[in-house]
Design a protein around this nucleic acid. Structure first.
Lengths: 197, 197
DNA sequence: CACAGATCTTGACACTGTCAAGCAATCCGG
DNA sequence: CCGGATTGCTTGACAGTGTCAAGATCTGTG
């Protein structure tokens, strides 16, 4: 107990973000509610309004945090891939594995980052965090550029594919495709694309 | 006036679907509401419950309709492409253009089909309609299979890419990538993938 | 110490989806 | 022709939601 709940919460903004992340992780997007986050932070239902611009503001702040985790997932899987097989392709597959693992394991956060309309994507912090995430993918694509400089085609190709792969897996668990055949693993598709890069 | 609003609406189910589609088209996903759809159909707020399993049911019924439009968009663009340049690649580009055009021009419906968690995707009508849509893409991919039989890799590659391309364009209008460079047109990316198919 | 400003609470409002109960119209068997 | 039975819709209520206005409470500073 924090000495009888003082009127002024120590850092309510932070507590609300933490509460929001927990609600999202445990109950999905529909469980994330301003009033619930406030309750979880031990505060009245209208308190969040003094720290965020409504629910949209809270979710935007949460998205900035989530991007850091997303970037971490890509870096972590890249490191694991490097350990197993230290070449350019293995590294790129590792980054993509991090992308896909984040989408699957933390679907709520992934939804926040790339799908939800409740996030202000031109928020400065969100833009900075998302640029950092994209840079990881960009770096991993660089070795496959024909002339050693960043190639928009390669980058778009890879990003588009890994993103589509993630979303189809997330949103269409029972789509007809599932019954038509087994979906090829992502690294097979990636190899097919890059073989002639 | 339909002769003083009879107590029994002629075909309320259909009217509610139409109202829902209109609300979604005009005001986006957040404008689609059971009560509003009921009001637009000239009926009391609890009437929809007798025709659909809540809002989720209405959206599921709407999704089935939307799939038909989606399939139509792909077929229509395929026909236009055939008219311009009648070969396998042009045909596949046409189908993908139809995919992307639908995603952009009817974003609300696209959201319903592939993103919204408020659609029961294993509903029989939805499954049938979505299978029909997928078949168009499948057929367009067939000529690029190495041995003339459907190739899961090619199909997944194309679908994944066009889907990712659509969603990144939809959800990240101001993402950092936009400022880094111009996104290559889709047919350029597609050509790059299939060149060695 | 006193006051100004930040911080949180309380209460209200308009929405939302959903349920129970009842009213109105149609249908069907006699 | 007519009287239940059934279907279709309405009314009313309830618990949630986000959001705003007003006020209470604490904190820091002159």
């Amino acid at each position: 107990m924090t000495k009888d709940l003082p009127h002024h919460h120590g850092d309510l903004r932070e507590a609300l973000i933490a509460a929001g992340l927990r609600l999202l992780a445990e109950g999905g997007p529909s469980a994330l509610t301003l009033r619930r986050a406030a309750a979880l932070a031990g505060v009245s239902h209208a308190a969040p309004a003094h720290h965020f611009d409504g629910l949209k503001g809270l979710q935007t702040a949460m998205a900035a945090r989530a991007y850091a985790q997303f970037t971490g997932s890509m870096i972590q899987h890249r490191a694991a891939a490097e350990l197993a097989l230290n070449n350019d392709f293995s590294r790129l597959v590792g980054v993509c594995d991090g992308y896909l693992a984040f989408a699957m394991d933390r679907a709520g956060l992934f939804h926040l980052l790339f799908v939800s309309a409740e996030v202000t994507r031109d928020d400065p912090q969100v833009m900075q965090a998302s640029a950092a995430a994209y840079q990881v993918l960009r770096d991993a694509c660089l070795p496959f550029s024909p002339d050693g400089t960043p190639d928009p085609q390669i980058e778009t190709l890879v990003w588009t594919m890994v993103h589509g792969y993630a979303l189809l897996g997330l949103n269409l668990p029972d789509c007809p495709k599932r019954s038509l055949f087994d979906i090829p693993p992502f690294d097979v598709l990636l190899a097919r694309i890059l073989q002639r890069g």
